[in-house]
Amino acid sequence: MISARHAPHEKMAFQLTLRRRGISDQAVLRAMEAIPREAFVEQGDEGYAYRDAALPIACGQTISQPFVVAYMTEQLQLKPYHRVLEIGTGSGYQAAVLSRLARDVVTLERFRFLAERAKSRLAALGCGNVEVLIGDGFDVPDSAGRFDRVIVTAAMEDIPEGLLRHLAPEGLLIAPVGPPSGSQVLVRLRGTGDGFERTNLIGVRFVPALPGIAREM
């Protein structure tokens, strides 16, 4: 349920903003409409949940602005039978949106606090096809297998080979690439059978992806 403090016109404006900025995939728009964004922001920020802006969350991380979430999701070209890997669970919002569009979602988070809180939020919303794991996005275990789609929600200076090994043949990977304090670009890699085809999409600004599992907060 959407909180009563968010009037229908606010949700309508939210959808119109996404459409005006070029989001046209109806399945993505429906998923964005179905997931209550206010359930994923920090207490006290609920009134800003449907603004097209990133918001701070715990552990020095952010919940991405709605347009970026929708754009990255649209660029994944998801099908209902896809298995998706997300690096950087954060609030759990992106994983919730993905859960509406894919068969299974595995999401890795290096902060235990964020992982546990996201797990509770996703369970409360009935996102039973999402598995939240505490782990290192730079060192995904081989046991995780391969994925049709991979999405990274923190900036990497380079996409590690170890992550690419988890991408199925002809799969898609979306990630912000660039230095932590400089310009970053959203990159899409498509498997071609004998390598990867790279497409630079839009300029973005993400918090940096860090290796290892964070110490307890």
Rank of each mutant, 00 (worst) to 15 (best):
K119N: 14
V132R: 02
A123K: 14
R112P: 00
D139E: 15
P141Q: 06
E131L: 14
R100N: 09
L108D: 03
C127H: 13
L98A: 09
L125D: 06
R110W: 04
D139R: 15
D139G: 06
L125Y: 12
L98E: 01
D104T: 12
D142F: 08
V97P: 04
P141M: 07
I134P: 01
L122R: 14
A118Q: 12
C127R: 11
I134N: 01
G135M: 01
R121G: 00
N129P: 11
R100A: 06
F111T: 00
L122D: 10
F113D: 15
V140S: 07
D136T: 01
S99N: 09
F138H: 13
V105A: 06
P141E: 06
L98K: 08
V140C: 11
G137E: 07
D136R: 00
E109T: 00
L101G: 03
V130D: 10
G137T: 04
L133E: 13
G128R: 13
E116K: 14
V106R: 03
F111S: 13
V106Q: 02
R100Q: 14
A102P: 10
A124Y: 13
A118G: 03
D136G: 00
R117D: 14
D139Q: 14
V105T: 05
F113N: 12
D136M: 01
V132F: 05
L108G: 02
A115H: 06
L101M: 06
V130I: 13
V130A: 07
L101P: 01
G135H: 02
V105N: 07
R112N: 06
V130T: 06
V105G: 04
E109N: 02
R110A: 02
D104G: 00
R103C: 06
P141N: 10
V132C: 06
G137R: 00
A124V: 09
I134M: 06
L125S: 04
V132S: 05
P141D: 05
F138W: 11
F138N: 04
F111I: 00
